[in-house]
């Protein structure tokens, strides 16, 4: 069975016919030549395939392309490129928050989602319960960043650099807040 769909990928409208079984990840990688999102586990357990779907970070391996018809998709390649990197991409390079690089585009997209979610006041499992219950806005401490980025596994063990990179970007993203207490 096939479906005709349109996606806006990194700002560019794309029309394609997909097998209904094709995931958003495979549609991007195998049909639209966008290999920024990576296939690390294909079961939502590693985060390498993270993209922003209508602005929210998701694992593209568990989203059917047909179900994403009409959506706007942003991959790491759409956030920035080598010539004009996104501040997060710059921060990852600066803090060496990557080694083999395979999880990195997913980490970058996830981090972009984290910044937006924090700006929207979303709590996390690292938010102190009383703050959570009072509805107060979270501050992106290192503990908050670690928890929020835990859906992105990195086998090389670049977590320390990743947390530093996201922390830098968070402080730039929300200059009024001090953030990052450790």
């Amino acid at each position: 069975m096939e479906a005709d769909i349109t996606l806006t990928v990194d700002g560019r409208p794309r029309a394609l016919r997909v097998d209904t079984r094709t995931t958003l990840l495979d549609a991007l990688r195998e049909h639209l030549d966008n290999t920024a999102p990576k296939k690390g586990c294909d079961h939502g357990q590693c985060g390498s395939c993270t993209v922003l779907l209508s602005g929210r970070r998701v694992v593209s391996c568990l989203i059917l392309a047909a179900a994403a018809d009409g959506a706007e998709v942003t991959t790491a390649a759409g956030l920035g490129d080598e010539a004009a990197p996104h501040p997060l991409q710059q921060a990852f390079v600066e803090h060496d928050g990557l080694q083999c690089g395979y999880c990195t585009p997913g980490q970058v997209c996830s981090a972009a989602g984290v910044l937006d979610e924090a700006a929207a006041g979303w709590p996390s499992a690292a938010t102190p319960p009383d703050d959570l219950a009072e509805g107060s806005a979270p501050v992106l401490t290192d503990a908050e960043i670690r928890e929020r980025m835990s859906g992105n596994l990195c086998r090389c063990g670049a977590y320390a650099g990743i947390v530093a990179a996201v922390g830098d970007a968070a402080r730039a993203h929300a200059p009024a807040e001090s953030g990052g207490n450790r």
Partner: peptide, 21 residues
């Protein structure tokens, strides 16, 4: 010095084996 291949990897444009057209 910063990782030579860092910017390509962070942008997702560095091709891995499965990704060659």
């Amino acid at each position: 010095p910063r990782r030579a291949d860092g910017p390509r990897k962070a942008a997702g444009t560095a091709p891995y084996a499965y990704e060659y057209p």
